[in-house]
Design a protein around this nucleic acid. Sequence first.
DNA 1: TAATTGTGCTAGTGAAATTAGAACAATACG
DNA 2: CGTATTGTTCTAATTTCACTAGCACAATTA
Lengths: 126, 126
Amino acid sequence: MKLEQYDGGVLIRVDPGSGVAIYDQIAASVRAQLARGALSPGDRLPAARELAEALDVNIHTVLRAYQDLRDEGLIDLRRGRGAVVTEAAAPDGPLLDAVRALIAEARRAGVGPQSLISLIREEYPS
Amino acid sequence: MKLEQYDGGVLIRVDPGSGVAIYDQIAASVRAQLARGALSPGDRLPAARELAEALDVNIHTVLRAYQDLRDEGLIDLRRGRGAVVTEAAAPDGPLLDAVRALIAEARRAGVGPQSLISLIREEYPS
DNA sequence: TAATTGTGCTAGTGAAATTAGAACAATACG
DNA sequence: CGTATTGTTCTAATTTCACTAGCACAATTA
C-alpha cells in the first residue's frame, strides 16, 4: 500500500514494504521533483510534523530525509523556518531529456530499472 | 577495504562498509558487467561456495545475490549446474553510450549520483 | 557411485531503521 | 512582547533486516 501526501503541489509517496528505507523514499521523492521542476527554488516543503502525520510516520524519519537533502545542498533547513528549496536546486531541462532518452533506450534493450541503476552506480562513482 | 575475486574474466568487488548491502553489491557488479558485455550469455558465474570463500562472505549472502539476478531473468540458477548467464542478458552498446552521455550531462548540471538515481527510479516505474 | 551445486531450514548476532516522548532553541507573526 | 510554529537534541525501546553459522537434502554432472 502506498501513502501519499499532497500539499500545494508537493506530492510524496511512501511504500513501507518496498525494501527501501522510508527516509530514503521521502528524500528520493523530493530529489526527483526538484530535478523535474515540480519544485522550484524558494518553495517550501511541508513541516516535518505535518508530513510525518500525513504519512503515518515518525517525525524523526521525515527529519532524517530532510537532513540528508540539506547535506546535499538541495534545501535550506532551519528551525522556525522549515525546509526551503535552495537556489542550487534549479530544474534542468537537458538533464531530464537525457534521462528520458536513456530510459527509452533501456526499455528497447529490455534492461530493467535495477540493471540500469547498477550500471550508473558503476559508471558514476561517488 | 575492497575484496575482489577473479575467475576467468569475472571480477567482483565488495566493500563491507559502503552502506550498500553486500548481496546488492554482488548483484550490481554482475548486472553492470552484463550490460557492459564483460559477461555474455552462456558464461558461468563462480559457484556460490567458491565466491563466498573468495570474498570472505557467507554462502547465503552470495546466494541471495544470485537469486535476485535470477528473479530479474539475468541468469539461470539451478542446483548441480550453477549460475549461467541468460540469452536475455545480452550486452548493449547504445545503452552504454546513453548512460555515459547522461552521466556527463549530470556532472555538468552538478547533479550527484543520488539525485540522478532518484530521478530514474521515479521516471522508470517498476 | 561420487562430487558438485543450489535449496531449505533453524538460529543467533549485530547494525540500522523506526518509533516514542520529552525538553529546548530559533524563527515568524500577531 | 507573547505565542505558536518548527527544527534540534537527547534518551530509550522496539523492530527490521543483513549477515553469519551449520546442517541436511535434492538435483545435476562426471
